[in-house]
Design a binder for these strands. Structure first.
Length: 621
RNA sequence: GCCUCGGUAGCUCAGCUGGUCCAGAGCGAUUGACUUGUAAUCAAUAGGUCGCGUGUUCGAAUCACGCUCGGGGCUCCA
């Protein structure tokens, strides 16, 4: 709604001729005059149609606010289409205009000019600073509050802890001794109680290491990645994609935006408690995907699938998925509005097979996180299901607990609120006792129907598959967050923080003592391979060593006259050092190479993301 | 959406009971000297309408109000 508000000495109108859209009015209403009145010229717009009651309330409030400011007791409601290029239907406009007049007439003397007539009018504007104002009202722009979001509050959860003996204990009865992180996680989930007043450590690290940074030019929660950050992220993405390929998943790519009015998608939006980014494109309303479900399910709908292809897996590394999280939820890279999520979907022939896949993907998720540097003790497990599902699959659930050999948090629902009957998540609990979900798998019993996805069984009959959603690692940014937080925790414990060698932007740094050693340094870098760089800046050795330490470089090799003589390298090994005493070792190039090969074997690889000579590198921060 | 803190040089910040120590420091950048042996070599140079606007005042980075952007918290969290 567009409002133009004019404080007038008087406003006078006369309806001359009806247009096609004209509302029917008595002759007495065709003329009118108000003295000392606030005149509200109003254009009702397309998106006001979504919630007319709210628009009436807000519109009336805005007008009343201004009326109070200028101390006007009379209000003229005057339809004025020319304030907007995106008008509502006439019926809606009349409804809203009448509604506003009704509301305002409780406290003011209100007159309304008829809608849809050619009118002559005379207005005398007072000309003081507040006498001409305009307002735009756009209720809930960019926000569709889904039914799921609304109903979520109503879902009744029972919180339990499932221990290693298969006992399901009330969460508040459980003895958390020896399971402090699980307790923190449970508190976080159940009571939602937490008091934190510090910036989480990864925020400083992500910037200082020149990995990731805020981008003020975008929306909050949309980050920029510097070369080192892009490298780390890319390596993690590839790790997950490789793992998915090992599981037999086919990589696909799907659009990042979809039509809001698409019937299937519309229904799905209502089942997913997330806020969307909306885009107005010409006549269409589009939303940015918050996962890859749509693309893959729409693809699945069009596919011809034989039972022979099942279980059938597709994965997309969604760069990006978008969720318009509330402003205050965003912290560093823990929670973002644009994030990279590996999203894999599996079609299985029946629940039996779905459960089997669930278990495999549970194991695969543990593997992926371990390879990324997060062990089972670094996260807590939550398993959520409906009562019915648990009754039928009690032993299966207990088996999941056996695999990780520690108690897990259980959330149980009387009835199914969402599209899934069973899900697990791995939650990282950080030094500030905040929990965030990493890997997750869900068994979906709804969307095969919704998207009309079928496979043909042995007898030639069309059957509905059971679907699984899986993010083997969770959002890649969040894995980076967890890795950095874990490093920060180590450094609190007096250890030297570092990224694993395969993830380190610089794997080996060669420090020539004087200019005459640079040639050898260059030759060595060539022989070594890996991500080896050379600190050829005009600085002292001490300074270069310090800088390499600040960058968390795993191997630092100093080259001087001695090394030229002996052919050995003086290598400082970060993983074996402590803040007080660096672990220095003399080794040959081959020995170093062997070490690196061992530490990076089977892991994704990318070349150095920056110039090999440090003297040629720009600074990003 | 609410609460709270903040915006001064590329970065981190000091100054903020209003007035030639107010426009500063360290880091970084540039230039020069040094050719260096394991956590900061020395010196010089360049860089800022102190977030924007309005007001108070003889005078505003400093006080007031409004706006804006950002951090954190709450709410929220698949």
């Amino acid at each position: 709604m567009q409002l133009l508000l004019i404080h007038s000495d008087f406003i006078e109108f006369e309806a001359k001729r009806p247009t096609k859209l004209a509302e029917e009015v008595e002759d007495s209403a065709k003329k009118g005059r108000l003295d000392e009145a606030l005149c509200a010229f109003i254009a009702v717009e397309k998106f006001d149609e979504d919630d007319t009651d709210a628009v009436i309330a807000e519109g009336a409030k805005q007008v009343a606010d201004v009326a109070n400011q200028v101390k006007a007791n009379r209000i003229m409601i005057y339809p004025y289409a020319h304030l907007s290029s995106s008008l509502s239907t006439p019926a809606t406009a009349v409804k809203i205009l009448k509604g506003m007049a009704d509301v305002l007439s409780e406290n003011y003397e209100v007159m309304r000019a008829p809608f849809g007539w050619y009118k002559a009018f005379t207005i005398s504007c007072k000309g003081h600073p507040l006498s001409e104002l305009s307002r735009s009202i756009r209720l809930g722009e960019g926000e569709v509050v889904s039914e799921a979001l609304k109903s979520e509050a109503k879902a009744v959860s029972y919180w339990r802890v499932l221990d290693l003996d298969g006992n399901l204990v009330d969460a508040d009865q459980f003895n958390f001794e020896g399971h402090t992180n699980l307790q923190k996680f449970a508190n976080y989930e159940i009571s939602k109680a937490r008091a934190v007043d510090k910036v989480p450590p990864h925020v400083e690290l992500m910037r200082r290491l020149e990995l990731v940074d805020y981008e003020p030019g975008s929306d909050s929660g949309n980050m920029r990645y510097y070369p080192k950050g892009r490298l780390v992220k890319s390596l993690l993405e590839n790790l997950v994609l490789e793992k998915a390929a090992d599981m037999g998943a086919m990589e696909v790519e799907t659009p990042i935006m979809y039509d809001m009015e698409h019937p299937t998608l519309k229904k799905y939006l209502d089942r997913f408690p997330a806020r969307q980014y909306q885009i107005d494109s010409d006549k269409r309303k589009l939303f940015l995907r918050f996962a890859a479900c749509f693309g893959q399910f729409l693809m699945g709908h069009d596919m011809s699938i034989s039972y022979k292809s099942l279980p059938l897996k597709m994965i997309e590394m969604t760069r990006y998925s978008f969720r318009r999280e509330q402003r205050g939820e965003l912290v560093g890279i823990r929670r973002l509005r644009a994030f990279t999520m590996p999203d894999m979907h599996t079609m299985t022939r029946d629940m039996y097979s779905a459960i089997e896949e669930f278990r495999k993907q549970y194991l695969a998720s543990i593997d992926v996180l371990r390879e990324a540097g997060l062990e089972v003790e670094d996260y807590e497990v939550a398993i959520r299901f409906t009562q019915d599902f648990y009754k039928e699959n009690q032993e299966f659930i207990a088996g999941l607990v056996d695999i990780i050999k520690k108690p897990v948090l259980i959330e149980m629902w009387d009835e199914r609120f969402f599209y899934f009957v069973l899900k697990f998540e791995f939650n990282f609990v950080d030094t500030m006792d905040k929990a965030s979900a990493l890997s997750t798998v869900q068994i979906d019993v709804e969307n095969a129907d919704r998207y009309d996805i079928n496979y043909i069984d042995e007898s030639g009959a069309r059957r509905r598959p059971i679907l699984l959603h899986c993010s083997p690692s969770g959002a890649i940014e969040r894995v980076m967050y967890a890795i950095l937080e874990k490093a920060a925790r180590l450094s609190l414990q007096g250890k030297l923080p570092m990224l694993e060698t395969w993830l380190s932007p610089t794997q080996v740094r060669i420090i020539p003592v004087a200019e005459r050693h640079q040639e050898r340094a260059l030759a060595l870098a060539g022989i070594l391979g890996f991500r080896t760089d050379i600190d050829d800046r005009d600085e002292t050795v001490g300074k270069k060593i310090r800088d390499a330490g600040r960058e968390w470089v795993p191997y630092v090799a100093v080259i001087g006259d001695e090394e030229l003589q002996s052919g050995q390298l003086a290598v400082t090994i970060r993983s074996e050092s402590t803040p007080k005493s660096p672990a220095k070792k003399s080794m040959t190039v081959d020995e170093l190479k062997e070490r690196l090969t061992g530490e990076t074997k089977g892991k994704p690889w990318r070349r150095l993301p920056l110039a090999m000579r440090l003297s040629e590198r720009p600074r990003f921060i």
